[in-house]
Amino acid sequence: MVNREATRQQGKEAKRQGGSERIQAAYAALESVTDPEIPVINVIEMGMIADVRVDGDRLVVDLTPTFVGCPAIDVITHSIREAMRSIGETEAAVNVVYEPPWSSDRITEEGRRKLKEFGLAPPSARCESGMASIDRVACPFCNSKNTSLESIFGPTLCRSIHYCQSCLQSFEHFKPV
């Protein structure tokens, strides 16, 4: 929790001290860019924006990908460029970076709430806590923890599949990474 909070604060802080209107406008435009596999949550809520800055004359967005092999990276990069173009940043650069490494701890509270609403259980644990952490994930529909892990891998790289013994439904979970 502390970590998530810290990340969020850092994000806000960056916005504030980045200061310039250009950067604020860029953050605002980024709110409209979503992950095509989970269209309810934007790239900021997802914790994928590592930095926005002005380098010389050019606006630069650093994107830290959820999974290195995520096939949506190109689409997201493209959408970010489009969003930047829409606010007049025609030369904006989007870099894919691994530092900070994306972790599911970077998803904001608002992002977690939206994932749950979407029917996707938010990451159940801190990413380092290992194996036991995805055995008993709270069901996003009825909140029961009487659930079982059905498959470590799901329809996208970032999801596992679970079954709720209380409401008898299968559900997907965003894996802690």
Partner: peptide
């Protein structure tokens, strides 16, 4: 940096 990222997935 890259290895740190990949480790999380390889888990």
């Amino acid at each position: 940096q890259l290895a740190t990222k990949l480790r999380g997935e390889e888990k």
